[in-house]
Design a protein around this nucleic acid. Sequence first.
DNA 1: CTTATTGGTAAGTTTTAACTTACCATTGGG
DNA 2: CCCAATGGTAAGTTAAAACTTACCAATAAG
Lengths: 117, 117
Amino acid sequence: MSYPTDELLALASETRATILQRLEAGPRTVGEIAQGLPVSRPAISQHLRILEQAKLVTEEYQGTRHIYRIDPTGLATLRTWLDRFWTRSLDAFAAEVERQNQTPHPSHAKQRRASRP
Amino acid sequence: MSYPTDELLALASETRATILQRLEAGPRTVGEIAQGLPVSRPAISQHLRILEQAKLVTEEYQGTRHIYRIDPTGLATLRTWLDRFWTRSLDAFAAEVERQNQTPHPSHAKQRRASRP
DNA sequence: CTTATTGGTAAGTTTTAACTTACCATTGGG
DNA sequence: CCCAATGGTAAGTTAAAACTTACCAATAAG
C-alpha cells in the first residue's frame, strides 16, 4: 500500500482535529462547524476540502446548506496502513533484539556536548 | 487521550517516511540514512529530531556515530488513539444511519456551480 | 422579482515547515 | 598532539500551509 500522505496530513492539524471532533457528535453544516472557532468561515471551508479529499468526511447538499459527516473510509485506510507498519516495525525491532543477543553488548551512555570553559 | 499531534505531524512528511522506511531494515547511522536522499545531512538530522520527539525512533551514541532505530512507542500511541477514534466515528456513523431510517429521505444530488452563460 | 441566507472560490498575506550553508564539538586513530 | 570522520546546531532562505478579506453563485422565502 502506498503511504497515506493525504490522511496523515489532513489529521496533522489542530483546527481540523477540532472539526472532526465536532462531527463525532453528528452531521453539521459549515456554519455550525465554524461557530465559535477562532478562524474564519472560508478557512473552515478550505479545511473541509482537505478532509474531504482525504476521505475523512463526506459532503451532502441540502438546498443552500452543505452538511458534513465523518467518513470511515479515510480512517480505514489509515488503520490498515498503520497495522502493517506496526507489524513490520515490531518485526524489525525483534530482529534487532535477536542480533543484539548474539554479540556482547558494549554498554551505551547517552550524553554529549557538555562543553565546559 | 490527547490528540497525538507530534506523531501525526512527524509521519506527515515524505522525507521522514523515507527515513522510517530505511530504518525498517534495521538500525542505521545518520550518514547511512542520509545516503542518496535528495536533501542535505543537516536536514536529516532535523528530521531525526522530530521523529525522536514523537517517539518514533531512538538514538544511541557509539563513539562519534549516532545510531537510530525504530521505536514502537510512538506507533503504539498512534494505534491506541486511532482505534478509539475509529470506534467513536463508527458509532456516530451508525447512530446517524439509525436516525436516517426514522425519517423519509429527501433524495440528494451533488452538483453545483455549473453556471451557464 | 427581490432580498436574505449559506457557503464556495480567488487573491493576497502571514505564519510555519523544510531546507541550505557555515561552523563547531566529540571521538578515534596515527 | 594532530588530523580525519561523524554529526549536531545556528542562522538565514525558500517553499508551503493557514488564514484573511472580498466577492459571487445558488437556493429559500417573502
